[in-house]
Nucleic acid binder design. Structure first.
Length: 275
DNA sequence: GTGGCCCTGTGA
DNA sequence: TCACAGGGCCAC
């Protein structure tokens, strides 16, 4: 699924295309990933105007008029796509929103891990975001080398990659970007978090920001079939140095990139230059 | 902390 | 037929 760069790309596109528009119709084709009944979902969302499109970690927050927020998590294979009226729903279409001005927005998800949930805007922090136990946004001032060092030492026995992926020390970096940031910082993914030196922690902090920033610029990575809201793939995968490069030569030292399993996830690193 | 699990599709 | 795939929650 989309990690932060992909979700942020979609957020920006939605922000540009749907803010100010009114929801003129709602069609529900698959309701199991909603937190309310189909009837309630249609009744609540229909007729409201889109006020803002925000993001916290990998969750999209679509604020509607009247104090309602529609939260969307794309998980592994969820998509939000602008569609034409003539486009028929596919077997993976969960929701279709008609919007004023002739716009249409579709939510689809092959693996059905993604969800769409309604909350009162005022309570979203307490009811949704808070319980997720999220760390700071990577580009917030709150994410510093010091905050990272503190978080790593508080979970010193965890391996660094699963800890970064847990969203606890910083949000937004998933399986791809964690492998990339660790490669750039020259840190092995299976290092215990508590063993990182201050210098390594500083590098990791900088590289998490750098990788995510560059990936946003390139509208994310399309390893398999991710596309943005316009249906276009991202272009950052051409920049991947570790992820998906098992068996290839390391661009930095010429060693062979190795693929292992760590925390149940495919993990790519260079045993020669990542320490 | 680690592994299983929620699902479906794809490629070896 | 089986392992694996951009996530994250929940039970051991």
């Amino acid at each position: 699924m989309p990690e932060l760069p992909e979700v942020e790309t979609i957020r920006r596109q939605l922000s540009k295309e749907i803010v100010g528009r009114r929801v003129s119709s709602v069609d529900v084709f698959f309701a199991k990933r909603l937190n309310v009944s189909t009837k309630k979902f249609i009744g609540e969302v229909s007729g409201r105007r889109v006020r803002d499109v925000r993001r916290r970690a990998k969750v999209l927050l679509i604020d509607l008029s009247g104090g309602l927020t529609m939260a969307v998590h794309l998980k592994m294979t969820g998509r939000l796509l602008f569609t034409k009226k003539a486009d028929a729903p596919t077997k993976h279409t969960h929701l279709v929103f008609g919007l004023s001005g002739g716009r249409r927005l579709m939510f689809e998800d092959v693996r059905k891990f993604g969800w769409v949930r309604l909350f009162e805007t005022a309570t979203i922090e307490d009811s949704l975001i808070g319980p997720m136990g999220l760390g700071p946004e990577p580009f917030d001032d709150a994410f510093t080398p010091e905050s990272l060092a503190k978080c790593l030492s508080s979970r010193g026995n965890s391996r660094i990659k699963p800890l970064i992926m847990s969203q606890r020390c910083v949000v937004g970096s998933g399986n791809i970007y964690t492998d990339e940031a660790l490669w750039k910082a020259r840190i092995r993914p299976d290092r215990k978090a508590g063993t990182l030196t201050r210098q390594e922690t500083n590098r990791l902090h900088a590289e998490i920001r750098s990788v995510l920033k560059e990936a946003i610029k390139r509208r994310g990575s399309s390893v398999d079939d991710y596309v943005d809201a316009y249906g276009r793939p991202g272009t950052y995968e051409t920049k991947h140095e570790a992820y998906g490069r098992g068996g290839e030569k390391c661009a930095r030292c010429g060693g062979l990139i190795r693929k292992i399993r760590l925390g149940g996830r495919g993990t790519h690193y260079c045993p020669k230059c990542q320490k």
